[in-house]
């Protein structure tokens, strides 16, 4: 633990590529230790007492923001939430100025969620404290990928050499990109499944297999990750209707028959029941959707703990 801590202190977490496989395993081990904290009656440890964490969220978010907030509070850090509706962003302050002003109040970490790819990376260059990417556009969502790895690891006992499928709007998904990078770091074979209009042109650069057939996608996989489909994409002309989308890409019990009996079903949420995932599958025995949310808190506790250097205080 000692060496792991020293390696992380003061760093940023902007993308999976910032981490080595060893460091990810270090994060996983730390997260397991923190998972217990959430099971206790007194869900608080003094580890980050006196540390300040700012959640700077430029996009609506329930899960990620709450998860970071609870993670920080269970470590006894002071957590402040800033969302665009309640900050001076609405008065026309630039992102740079907002970050500089928050940085001037000397937080130990800033969690940035932003619709623009690269915004957390920019914040990291100017903030003078650790910056954690809480999701930037379609670029990256590293803590989601880490909590997903933890969820898989807990079930399978390993994250090595998996066969995984990611089904849905790959084009617009930061979760897909970060998970592809994380899974492949551990030797996974990743298949993506979507209509061609929801795959990026140049998808081969992601180092994945491509299929448009969900049965083929789920067959023989250790893990199947479903992605939320947004109605906005329909208005953009990327598919004709939710009805037709779900006809081809909904993970139903019938589709699941093509999968292995020990398949893990995941979804970063929020889910659209009956659209990309059938209600009974979401609630069914293979589903780890709520486990992901639980691990989200533990993993974010690990990230905050290691980046903010709680051990020294």
């Amino acid at each position: 633990m000692e060496t792991v801590e020293k390696k992380f202190r003061g760093r940023h977490l902007l993308q999976i590529a910032d981490l080595t496989a060893d460091e990810i395993m270090g994060l996983l081990n730390t997260a397991y230790k923190f998972k217990d904290v959430s099971e206790r009656e007194i869900k608080k440890v003094p580890t980050l007492r006196g540390k300040t964490i700012v959640n700077l969220f430029y996009e609506p978010s329930t899960r990620t923001r709450t998860s970071f907030e609870i993670a920080g509070k269970r470590l006894s850090a002071d957590v402040i939430n800033i969302s665009t509706s309640s900050s001076s962003v609405s008065k026309g302050e630039t992102f740079k100025d907002t970050v500089l002003n928050i940085a001037a109040m000397k937080p130990d970490a800033i969690v940035v969620r932003h619709g623009s790819p690269g915004a957390p990376a920019y914040a990291a260059r100017i903030a003078g404290c650790s910056v954690i990417n809480g999701g930037d556009g379609a670029n990256a969502h590293p803590t989601q990928a880490l909590l997903d790895l933890m969820t898989i690891h807990e079930k399978k006992g390993t994250v090595e050499n998996l066969k995984a499928a990611i089904v849905g709007d790959i084009l617009h998904s930061r979760v897909a990109r970060s998970n592809i990078n994380a899974l492949k770091m551990f030797g996974a074979e990743v298949t993506v499944c979507a209509p061609p209009t929801l795959l990026p042109h140049g998808v081969k650069a992601l180092g994945v297999k491509v299929t448009h057939d969900i049965r083929e996608a789920v067959a023989d996989k250790d893990v199947v990750m479903m992605l939320r489909i947004q109605t906005e994409r329909m208005q953009q002309g990327l598919f004709p209707s939710l009805r037709e989308y779900s006809e081809h890409f909904c993970l139903s019990a019938k589709v699941l028959k093509s999968a292995r009996p020990d398949v893990l079903i995941m979804h970063p949420g929020p889910i659209n029941r009956g659209v990309e995932i059938a209600s009974d599958v979401a609630d069914g025995p293979y589903s780890l959707i709520l486990s992901q949310v639980t691990h989200g808190v533990a993993m974010r506790m690990a990230v905050l703990y290691l980046l903010c250097g709680g051990a020294e205080s």
């Binding site: 790819p117 990256a140 617009h172 990026p200 042109h201 140049g202 998808v203 650069a205 992601l206």
Partner: peptide, 15 residues
């Protein structure tokens, strides 16, 4: 530009 780099970075492409 739309292509391999935009696919990796998740940045909207101009083909």
């Amino acid at each position: 530009n739309e292509g391999e780099t935009s696919a990796r970075l998740g940045i909207k492409g101009m083909p």
